[in-house]
């Protein structure tokens, strides 16, 4: 029976391994039911609004303020994470020091720790009586319930991305290139900026984009520390939730569609960057 099946089509002949139908069928079913239909529902709901209704909901003054807070805070947090991540990756790859492996493992904590826990702890650390707040608040640095607080917690949430994208690249970077650059008389700074930096730049960008994308959607950690004041510290995901609590589904959907479209664009950029990273493989 298997021999007749093998002969049946030219395509099958090349496919000696079994299970394409089952595995692909099952995966496609899950993807369709769980990903595509819900996503389609979101756009279908948005399509029930007239363009002016959609615009009014997605671009109200409160929504504009929420996008602004979301983007500015995510952007600043992603920039900070890029710098911190570069330092962490560099030190972890290049130097030996006490507790290196322990620190390397700890870097992943933001991925493993529930965001609600992160939000709860960070909110507590930076209040007036908190461990950090008691030093910062007297200097006039308010973190809890401000945009600075949102940035701080987003820096935590996104910390591992840049480290984990840059680290493998630094590990495989050829020492010979640096030796050559040095032998040809380059200063250390020239070697860094003209040999090493161009090599890790795509990974840095990818890490930045991943952090930024994650920060834009982040909800759990931010709600605890931001105080969610309209026009001041309300982020776009929170706006969706509060519209839902008012049973204003269409308005909530309009804001969500804006966020989803931005996330999709970022995902495309990240995919492109990753392909660019691997262009010499």
């Amino acid at each position: 029976m298997s021999s007749s099946a093998a002969k049946s089509t030219a395509l099958r002949k090349r496919r000696v391994l079994p299970g394409l139908g089952l595995s692909l069928g099952y995966s496609l079913t899950v993807v369709t039911l769980l990903l595509l239909i819900p996503l389609a529902a979101c756009f279908a709901k948005a399509a029930t609004l007239t363009p002016s209704q959609f615009w009014a909901a997605a671009w109200s003054e409160r929504a504009q303020a929420a996008y602004f807070v979301t983007f500015i805070c995510s952007f600043v947090a992603a920039i900070i994470d890029t710098f911190l991540g570069l330092i962490l990756a560099w030190v972890l790859v290049r130097y030996d020091f006490y507790g290196k492996r322990f620190i390397d493992s700890l870097i992943d904590l933001p991925f493993a720790l529930p965001t609600a826990v992160a939000g709860l702890v960070y909110a507590n650390l930076y209040t007036k009586n908190g461990w950090f707040g008691q030093w910062l608040v007297p200097w006039g640095i308010e973190v809890s319930f401000t945009r600075l607080g949102i940035i701080v917690v987003l820096v935590f949430v996104g910390l591992p991305f840049v480290v984990r994208t840059v680290q493998p690249l630094l590990e495989t970077l050829d020492n010979d290139l640096e030796d050559a650059s040095e032998l040809l008389g380059a200063t250390r700074w020239q070697t860094l900026s003209m040999v090493i930096f161009p090599a890790i730049q795509p990974a840095l960008l990818t890490g930045f984009a991943l952090t930024f994308a994650r920060a834009i959607g982040e909800f759990g950690s931010v709600v605890f520390i931001s105080g969610n004041k309209q026009y001041k510290t309300e982020i776009a995901p929170f706006l969706i939730v509060s519209r839902l609590e008012e049973y204003a589904y269409a308005e909530a959907t309009a804001v969500a569609v804006v966020l989803i479209v931005i996330s999709l664009i970022l995902l495309l950029i990240i995919n492109g960057l990753e392909r660019w990273n691997r262009r010499y493989d």
Binding site: I37, P38, C42, K45, A213, G217, A256, L259
Partner: peptide
């Protein structure tokens, strides 16, 4: 990879709409 990019709140909303 979509779930990595989409805000969890939007995910909740989608199932709400369905």
């Amino acid at each position: 990879d979509l779930p990595f990019a989409i805000s969890p709140v939007a995910v909740g909303l989608m199932f709400m709409l369905l």
